[in-house]
Design a protein around this nucleic acid. Structure first.
Lengths: 140, 140
DNA sequence: TATTAAGTTGTAATGATTACAATTTTAATC
DNA sequence: GATTAAAATTGTAATCATTACAACTTAATA
C-alpha cells in the first residue's frame, strides 16, 4: 500500500495554489486527504481528525470539502452508497467501486482528447469515470 | 426533442428479456422510462404516474427501480444532487450534468475497449461516465 | 484597542432512501 | 371454484447524508 507524507509547507502551498486562505482546520483536512488516498467519506474524515482536533465540527468538514472542490484542489466521487467520497489527486484517473465492500480503487484512465460532446455550447468543467463491480477481495 | 412510443407487448418483452415478472406497476414504471428519456428522479417518476395509478406507492417505485437495475434493463445515474436519476437506454453513452439547472443530457461516448484496469481480479459490471459543467441554456 | 470580516461550531431542518409490518394481489394446490 | 401459500404492493416510521442558520470565535484591519 502506497504511503504519502507532506510537510506543513507543502500543504500550505497546495492551498495557496488553489487560492484558499489557510486555517488549522483546512490544513488538517487537506493534509488528511493528501496523505490518505482511500477516498474517505465525510464521516471517515471527521472521525479520523476528531481526536487531534477535539473542537472540529462536521459542518466545517462539509464547508471545507466544498471549498477545496471549488478551488479544484480535491474532487468529489458520487458513488450512491454511504455518501460522497473525497479524493486528492493530481493525475487523470478513474475509479472502481466494489459494490460488495464499498471500497473505491484508483484506475489509470485518460479521457479521450476528442470528446464527442452534444451540440456545441456545453462547457465541460470535469469528467468522472466510475466502474462498478466486484473487487478481488470480494470475488472470493 | 425525440419522442418514443411503445406497445404493451414491447414493454412486456423488455421485462421478460430481463427475467422480471410483470405487474401493472412494473409495466407503468418501465414504460415511463422507455418513453420519457429525461433521466427522471424517483419523485418525478412517482408524480408522473400517480394520477393514472392512484394507489401507487413511492416504495414500489424504489423497489421496482432497484429490480429493473439488477436485471440490467435500466441504469442509475448518481449525480449527487436531487437524488439519483434513472435511465432506460440500450446504446453506450455518457451523461452531461449541468451544475446550474441540474438537467442531464446524453453524450455519445464509447468506452475504450482496452481498459487499463487495476490488478487483475476486478470484475467490471458497469461503467459510468459523467461530465459536469454548464449547458448552453445556462451559459447565457 | 476597537471594529469589522471571515471562519467555525452545534443544533435543527431537510430530503432522499430504506426498513418493516400490514394488506392486497397473484399463483399453486386441493 | 375454494383454499392455501407465495409474491408484490402499500403506508408509515426510521435512518442517514447533507444543508440552513444563528451564535460564537478567530483573524484582519483601522
Amino acid at each position: 500500500m502506497q504511503s504519502y507524507s507532506f510537510t506543513t509547507q507543502e500543504v500550505l502551498d497546495t492551498l495557496s495554489e488553489g487560492g484558499v486562505k489557510p486555517s488549522a482546520q483546512r490544513m488538517a483536512i487537506l493534509r488528511f486527504l493528501m496523505e490518505n488516498r482511500v477516498h474517505p467519506t465525510v464521516d471517515e474524515i471527521f472521525k479520523a481528525l476528531q481526536p487531534e482536533n477535539p473542537t472540529l465540527s462536521r459542518t466545517t468538514v462539509y464547508n471545507t470539502l466544498r471549498l477545496l472542490t471549488e478551488a479544484e484542489i480535491i474532487r468529489c466521487i458520487e458513488t450512491g452508497v454511504n455518501g460522497a467520497r473525497w479524493d486528492y489527486s493530481q493525475h487523470d484517473h478513474a475509479h472502481f467501486l466494489c459494490t460488495e465492500c464499498g471500497r473505491v480503487t484508483d484506475v489509470a484512465f485518460t479521457m479521450p482528447s476528442s470528446l464527442p460532446l452534444p451540440d456545441s455550447g456545453y462547457q465541460v468543467k470535469s469528467a468522472d469515470v466510475i466502474f462498478r463491480g466486484t473487487c478481488p477481495l470480494c470475488a472470493g
